[in-house]
Design a protein around this nucleic acid. Sequence first.
DNA 1: TTGAAAATAT
DNA 2: TATATTTTCA
Length: 302
Amino acid sequence: MREVDSNWFAKWEDELPAPDELIPLSQSLITTDLALAFDIRNSHQIATAAVPPPQSTANSSAEFDSAELGGGGEGGSGGGSGAGDEPARTLKRPRLVWTPQLHKRFVDAVAHLGIKNAVPKTIMQLMSVDGLTRENVASHLQKYRLYLKRMQGMSSNGGGVGGNNSPAALAAVGVDPATDHLFASSPVPAHFLHPSRANSDHFLPFLPVTAMQNHHQMAVVGPGAHHHQLQQQSRYFGTSPPNGQFEHPLMRQSQEQVQRMGTPVHSRNGSAVVPLPYVEDLESATATDGRKILTLFPTGDD
DNA sequence: TTGAAAATAT
DNA sequence: TATATTTTCA
């Protein structure tokens, strides 16, 4: 079992975001017209991880600024703008763009739940992406299932790729890179292709990297990174078995502390996980010693 | 609520 | 035109 732990840790460490993975979020959440109107070129416009709640409609008075990050609480009591929280009435939500990061979050959630329990609602809760609706997840799940289906069929008569599901391998087999590039961007967990043997209820830490990203501190990642730093960064996620004890590959904490970060999502097997708010906005820099420094956007509760 | 199909938008 | 995402429907 300790092997599992160290394995997780290694995997986690390995999956720490690369600089190019951290920035790319800026999907165009504003219309090109709007962008042009404000003469927004290529500067680092802040993109939201999720689609922000609709605020303005046809007018150009929008201020696409702060990403709606769950996490701590926004101190929105600044009283600067009189814009109240009008429940979006007939406003249409902006079209959701499934970025590779978002999709990864999705896949992780599904993998965590197991295909059987992976239903839109639960997935959505686990992802805990602000602005993400159940419909968003449902449609994406629909498409993803289609993708998995095609995948299975291929492996059965393609006769080459046994358990290798790396994007490269999949592409090599003939999956339209253009069509499925998003799905191919995240490796398909092995259990997904094995309906026969139900996926076990792994108590996997949920999205450790994201956990780190949400910690409003500076994390040093790289050859010089210390374990205790990583542990500290990852203390806010994990699984919570029915007995109420919080378990984590790296450390244990009380359930109470965990719940500070979010509402546990329970799956049918009785386990629960505490999803973390999803953040796509990250700045990256490189220290003089070569280590990567990930600076997190403060969410306001510092 | 879910999954699938139809409708739209990019 | 093709693909991605949303909306409708059973």
